[in-house]
Amino acid sequence: MQPDPRATQIIAQAASDSKTQNVTTLEVNGYTDTSGTATYNMGLSVKRAKAVAAQLVADGVPANEIEMHGYGETHLLVPTGPGVREPQNRRVEIIFH
């Protein structure tokens, strides 16, 4: 799963900002929309979080400062019914702690 150029730029900015802010942990949370099964979506959300975490490490963030979570189709940004393809729900959030 290769992030698009804009996503790569955002991840690089997060890595850079984590070095200049008082950050002890970066929480990387992956999410999906409701298309697909709940089991598949849970795995996909973890895969998304791992891809972003790997890029953060490539951009200089120590792996031990990254905490990853996959939330599957829970915590929808745009509430939808089951089986709905919603691009805004397919996301990874990077939270500084």
Rank of each mutant, 00 (worst) to 15 (best):
residue 72 G to W: 05
residue 35 S to I: 11
residue 49 A to Q: 10
residue 76 L to G: 11
residue 2 Q to L: 10
residue 18 S to Y: 02
residue 94 I to Q: 05
residue 11 I to T: 13
residue 50 K to F: 15
residue 70 G to N: 02
residue 41 N to D: 08
residue 85 R to V: 09
residue 61 V to W: 03
residue 73 E to K: 06
residue 28 V to T: 03
residue 87 P to G: 09
residue 20 T to N: 02
residue 30 G to D: 00
residue 34 T to F: 05
residue 63 A to D: 01
residue 82 P to S: 14
residue 92 V to A: 01
residue 93 E to Q: 04
residue 85 R to W: 07
residue 40 Y to R: 12
residue 49 A to F: 08
residue 19 K to D: 05
residue 73 E to C: 05
residue 52 V to E: 12
residue 64 N to S: 10
residue 32 T to M: 10
residue 37 T to S: 14
residue 74 T to G: 02
residue 59 D to G: 04
residue 25 T to C: 07
residue 42 M to R: 11
residue 84 V to T: 15
residue 14 A to D: 09
residue 90 R to Q: 15
residue 62 P to S: 03
residue 61 V to E: 00
residue 16 S to R: 07
residue 70 G to M: 01
residue 19 K to S: 07
residue 43 G to S: 07
residue 42 M to L: 11
residue 37 T to G: 13
residue 9 Q to D: 06
residue 68 M to G: 00
residue 41 N to Y: 07
residue 35 S to K: 14
residue 55 Q to S: 08
residue 82 P to R: 12
residue 25 T to F: 12
residue 28 V to N: 04
residue 83 G to E: 08
residue 82 P to W: 11
residue 77 L to Y: 15
residue 61 V to Y: 02
residue 65 E to S: 05
residue 53 A to Q: 07
residue 39 T to E: 12
residue 6 R to E: 13
residue 54 A to W: 06
residue 19 K to G: 06
residue 31 Y to W: 13
residue 14 A to F: 04
residue 77 L to G: 14
residue 72 G to K: 03
residue 9 Q to Y: 10
residue 67 E to C: 00
residue 32 T to H: 05
residue 12 A to F: 01
residue 68 M to S: 04
residue 40 Y to F: 11
residue 41 N to A: 05
residue 18 S to H: 02
residue 40 Y to K: 10
residue 78 V to S: 11
residue 44 L to H: 09
residue 37 T to P: 02
residue 9 Q to A: 15
residue 12 A to N: 02
residue 64 N to F: 09
residue 95 I to A: 12
residue 78 V to A: 11
residue 71 Y to P: 00
residue 48 R to M: 13
residue 77 L to T: 12
residue 12 A to Q: 01
residue 72 G to S: 07
residue 58 A to L: 14
residue 5 P to Q: 12
residue 96 F to G: 01
residue 55 Q to G: 05
residue 16 S to T: 08
residue 39 T to F: 15
residue 77 L to W: 15
residue 54 A to Y: 04
residue 64 N to G: 06
residue 31 Y to C: 01
residue 40 Y to V: 10
residue 70 G to D: 03
residue 47 K to C: 03
residue 63 A to Y: 00
residue 68 M to Q: 03
residue 64 N to Q: 08
residue 50 K to N: 15
residue 84 V to G: 06
residue 93 E to W: 01
residue 53 A to K: 14
residue 94 I to F: 08
residue 22 N to F: 06
residue 10 I to F: 09
residue 71 Y to N: 07
residue 92 V to L: 09
residue 92 V to R: 02
residue 38 A to S: 08
residue 4 D to M: 06
residue 46 V to E: 14
residue 17 D to R: 01
residue 86 E to N: 14
residue 87 P to K: 13
residue 86 E to W: 11
residue 55 Q to C: 05
residue 90 R to W: 15
residue 56 L to E: 08
residue 90 R to P: 07
residue 62 P to E: 03
residue 77 L to M: 15
residue 83 G to L: 06
residue 53 A to Y: 05
residue 44 L to K: 14
residue 74 T to V: 04
residue 10 I to P: 01
residue 96 F to V: 00
residue 49 A to I: 03
residue 76 L to A: 13
residue 79 P to F: 03
residue 29 N to L: 02
residue 6 R to W: 15
residue 50 K to H: 14
residue 71 Y to F: 05
residue 59 D to Q: 09
residue 27 E to Q: 11
residue 35 S to W: 07
residue 18 S to R: 01
residue 92 V to Y: 05
